[in-house]
Design a protein around this nucleic acid. Structure first.
Length: 789
DNA sequence: AGACGCAAGGTTTTT
DNA sequence: CCTTGCGTCT
């Protein structure tokens, strides 16, 4: 493309442009909320393609949702099509005839956007595995086929539960499936195999968990199935055990970009590290001539610790990949601190809040906009009152301001359960709304049933799916029969499906249920023959018809059944759409896509509907008017986090994320009492986070009752918020200096060692690995640290 | 085999 | 409030 257009980066600010022009080598972009990081990312990709002539196939971009991937692709496509229009036709894209625009776009799509790999860690890894999983072998020598099933969270928990109850006869109370599953996930996210866990667990509970993990992994293998963590863990192990495969992908992906890097976990980091350096030590890796690693993140927005995310990975980036210089001038870090999204008032509040965290690198959001409106803080009587208030405000604002439509409002909450009241009131007020999250489409029973049939078609080893549908709809195949058949399969070491195909085996084990089993087996066998030649929508339609699934729902004829039929129709439509949008419209592709789809992926902010979602889901989005509701102690911050300083800081980051979603207006609300499980009413006190916001940013509002609001900055002692500083003379007089390797003692976390030093002078921060408490980022000015020689 | 009713117990956040 | 599990009845 002609050099005349090399100034296409002109609408970026200097820091963004610097990021976008980055070519080879490592670069960390520390991007505050609303600082235009997606823009920087998009332009960087466009710049690589246009100016650096990088092959689209060599670009790998990891995003946090599939939706984000789609959007970046679209934006790159637009940028390229525009440049193309200027060079070939000498006119902007918009001035060309519609047909020519379409032609240009589809050409860009074919040549550029499609060959780029963009998506979540999970979807990208699933894609790698569909090509390479058959070359992998685990520590037990087990193998998987490329028709593998992907289990969702409820499937895996059910599996754990089955192991706890039926294999090991353990007490479900002592080994709650959810927490055991969590422990397994945690182990996997650290890259630990069942054997590793067995080796390192000494106490009873640990050994039992290790045992469950071992059996769990065995069961996955028997079913030719993977959980979400395996999708990433297996490529990592495959790359470690097979140099050639790693070398292939390393050669292929020369430019790797990772968005939301602060929410990367250990195993994801390993994957990035392997692909970037071909398995060499990243500190000494030097072959950067035609390759790059470009990560974007913000430690203040790290909110996924519970799923293994570790923001010290972001803080360690320069030490890992860079030149090791820890200061702000290093060439491997760029900070985007200018915020284009929110009013100055909102940013003041956000900055003040996050200042209360000690574990962070110093960074502020610099406003580019006017102060705007004050933040409204509403003290509601109860959750009903709160919901009425919110809906009332929405109507008033929409009436007063013709530029606002329903889609400009978002209601954000800590837990999904809070959505119900708002939904009720919105329905009554007749306002259009959409709820993101909660019970997802693909988790509905009827959808899971239909998908189980399809999974079974391509993955006969998937006994979990088989058991789900063998008697759905009812065929008179009962528990005793199935138990017998499963025993038989167990003894023979075969998948259940193999046993079912053997007529004599079925006759012996099943008795009068033999007939219906035969019918069921025939049904699947018939469809299996044509599975590769039949489009996914037809398979769905056919199976639902011939299995009698649809008929059963039709016969029931209840409102619920009609709803389910409707959902199945939706599934059909989804398959149809998938077929249109993908060149490989195979059933396997569709199923994989479905397993990894999140609720947000289908969300379009362009629709004029009030959006309700959790604070977690809101990350990366923005709205002119935001309501953060349920700002109460125990709810937000959540009671499970209140006794753990690190967890509390994560809640605070979540609050920071929420505040920074707002562009023009921000409303915070809390209720004096709240219904907990439906019946009991519980008194609630305002969230500590409210008292951490500067008073002059806020405008207080109440329900008319005596205002229970106690926020007079003076009455909430600042001492409660931050532990009192023991103004040790030693520290006040002699400014302590710190270096990597220093041993120290923290009043709370005990002994530790400095592993990184960030920033300098007033902005100095330390990464410390504590013997007991693990890795922490501390500001030595605030934390109570004593150096030991 | 399976439908139905009742009691009890449990809510963070998600790819 | 909503799901899950268990017992009883057909």
């Amino acid at each position: 493309m002609a050099a005349a257009h090399s100034d296409f980066l002109h609408h970026l600010n200097p820091a963004q442009r610097q990021a976008a022009q980055h070519y080879c080598g490592p670069l960390l972009v520390v991007a505050g909320a609303g600082s235009g990081k997606t823009r920087a990312l998009t332009y960087r990709i466009a710049n690589l393609l246009l100016q650096r002539r990088v092959d689209p196939e060599s670009i790998l971009a990891v995003t946090f949702t599939n939706k984000a991937a789609r959007e970046i692709k679209e934006r790159v496509e637009t940028l390229l099509a525009e440049q193309q229009a200027l060079t070939t036709a000498g006119r902007p894209l918009g001035e060309l005839p519609a047909s020519q625009q379409t032609r240009l776009r589809s050409e860009v799509y074919r040549r550029i956007t499609k060959p780029m790999w963009m998506g979540t860690f999970h979807s990208l890894c699933a894609r790698i595995l569909r090509l390479d999983i058959e070359k992998y072998q685990d520590e037990q020598g087990r193998r998987w086929e490329k028709t593998f099933s992907i289990l969702d969270e409820s499937d895996t928990q059910a599996l754990v539960k089955d192991i706890v109850l039926n294999d090991l006869n353990l007490d479900e109370k002592r080994f709650e499936p959810r927490s055991v599953r969590y422990a397994i996930s945690h182990a996997k996210n650290q890259g630990l195999t069942p054997r590793d866990v067995e080796r390192q667990e000494a106490n009873y509970r640990g050994r039992v968990v290790a045992d469950i993990y071992t059996r769990y992994q065995q069961r996955l293998a028997e079913n030719n199935a993977l959980d979400f963590d395996d999708l990433i863990g297996i490529p990592v192990r495959l790359f470690r055990q097979n140099e050639q495969i790693l070398a292939y992908w390393h050669q292929r992906f020369r430019h790797i970009l990772v968005d939301e890097y602060q929410d990367t976990n250990r195993i994801q980091y390993d994957l990035v590290q392997l692909l970037t350096t071909n398995g060499e030590d990243s500190r000494t890796f030097e072959a950067w001539q035609d390759r790059s690693i470009f990560v974007v993140g913000d430690a203040d927005q790290s909110i996924y610790k519970f799923r293994g995310a570790d923001f010290t990975i972001l803080l360690g980036f320069q030490g890992d990949f860079g030149d090791g210089l820890p200061d702000d001038d290093t060439r491997t870090m760029i900070k985007l601190e200018e915020n284009y999204r929110s009013t100055a008032t909102i940013l003041t509040a956000a900055n003040a809040l996050i200042e209360h965290n000690t574990e962070r690198i110093d960074k502020i959001l610099r406003p580019t906009r006017d102060p705007g409106e004050a933040i409204t803080c509403y003290a509601a009587e109860d959750e009903q009152d709160e919901a009425h208030y919110v809906v009332q405000q929405i109507r008033t604002l929409a009436r007063q301001n013709s530029a606002l439509n329903w889609g400009d409002f978002a209601i954000l909450y800590r837990t999904n359960a809070q959505s119900r009241v708002f939904e009720d009131i919105l329905v009554r007020a007749n306002l259009p709304y959409v709820i993101i999250g909660g019970l997802r489409f693909y988790e509905r029973k009827e959808i899971k049933d239909a998908l189980a049939y399809l999974r079974l078609l391509i993955n006969p080893a998937d006994s979990l799916s088989l058991l789900r549908v063998i008697n759905t709809p009812r065929r008179g195949i009962g528990k005793t029969t199935l138990d017998r058949l499963q025993d038989m399969a167990q003894t023979l070491g075969l998948p259940l499906w193999e046993v079912l195909q053997d007529g004599t085996a079925v006759q012996t084990a099943a008795g009068r249920a033999a007939r219906p089993i035969e019918t069921f087996v025939n049904l699947l066998q018939r469809w299996r023959v044509v599975v590769d030649q039949t489009p996914a929508p037809d398979l769905i339609q056919g199976i639902l018809e011939e299995s009698g699934y649809r008929r059963e729902l039709e016969v029931q004829g209840t409102d619920e059944s009609l709803d389910r039929l409707q959902n199945l129709q939706e599934l059909y439509n989804a398959a149809l759409q998938y077929g249109e949008e993908n060149e490989d419209p195979s059933l396997a592709g569709f199923l994989q896509n479905v397993s990894l789809a999140s609720d947000l992926d289908g969300y379009s902010e362009n629709q004029p509907r009030v959006t309700l979602m959790t604070l977690h889901s809101s990350k990366g989005l923005e709205f002119p008017v935001v309501f953060m509701v349920g700002m109460e102690q125990g709810l937000f911050p959540n009671f499970r986090s209140m006794n753990d300083p690190a967890a509390l800081e994560e809640e605070r980051r979540l609050c920071y994320v929420g505040i920074t979603r707002a562009q023009e207006c921000l409303f915070l609300s809390h209720a004096a009492s709240r219904r907990l499980y439906g019946n009991q009413r519980e008194a609630a006190i305002p969230s500590d986070f409210l008292s951490e916001l500067p008073r002059d940013c806020l405008r207080l509002d109440g329900s008319g009752r005596p205002n229970p609001y106690r926020m007079s900055g003076a009455s909430v002692s600042p001492d409660r918020r931050r532990p009192p500083e023991p103004m040790s003379e030693a520290r006040a007089a002699v400014p302590q200096t710190w270096a990597v390797g220093d041993q120290l003692i923290h009043d709370k976390f005990g002994p530790g060692e400095v592993t990184h030093v960030f920033g300098e002078g007033q902005r100095l921060n330390l990464a410390v690995r504590f013997v007991q408490a693990g890795h922490k980022i501390l500001d030595p000015k605030l934390a109570r640290l004593r150096k030991v020689n």
